[in-house]
Design a binder for these strands. Structure first.
Length: 109
DNA sequence: ACATTGACTAATT
DNA sequence: TAATTAGCCAATG
């Protein structure tokens, strides 16, 4: 996994607006569609790899706005993520346990 | 090289 | 709805 891919992932996460969220799969899909070897932006796999990047280098980006396909934040940071999301007004389910992707999902441009 | 792991997903029950 | 299962694919040891 080279720096170009790592930067590509982080730059997408940085673009997620406050109060909205996106998923690992959507980011992977976006990178797959927009991979351009000529620009050094290469496709480096699927959703799990996106997760790997955030686990490794997600410290300085709004990682709590990235959730899995069912709207649940990563189990390890579940509380912190939900608190942050609630604080910025992201639509959540009634039990406050997951993001209402139906309303909150943000798609990279 | 090989086996295990994981901030995942889609289908099944 | 929620829990389980099988598939996934690069990273890691």
């Amino acid at each position: 996994m080279d720096d170009a891919y790592l930067d590509a992932v982080l730059s997408v996460v940085e673009r997620v607006p406050s109060g909205r969220a996106t998923t690992y799969g959507l980011i992977a899909e976006y990178l797959r569609d927009h991979s351009d070897p000529a620009l050094g932006v290469r496709d480096r796999g699927g959703p799990r790899q996106v997760g790997t990047v955030l686990a490794r280098a997600g410290g300085d980006v709004p990682w709590w706005r990235v959730v899995n396909a069912t709207g649940s934040p990563p189990a390890r940071h579940r509380v912190r993520a939900l608190d942050a999301l609630r604080a910025e007004g992201c639509p959540l389910t009634a039990d406050g346990a997951r993001v209402r992707l139906r309303d909150a999902v943000w798609l990279p441009d």
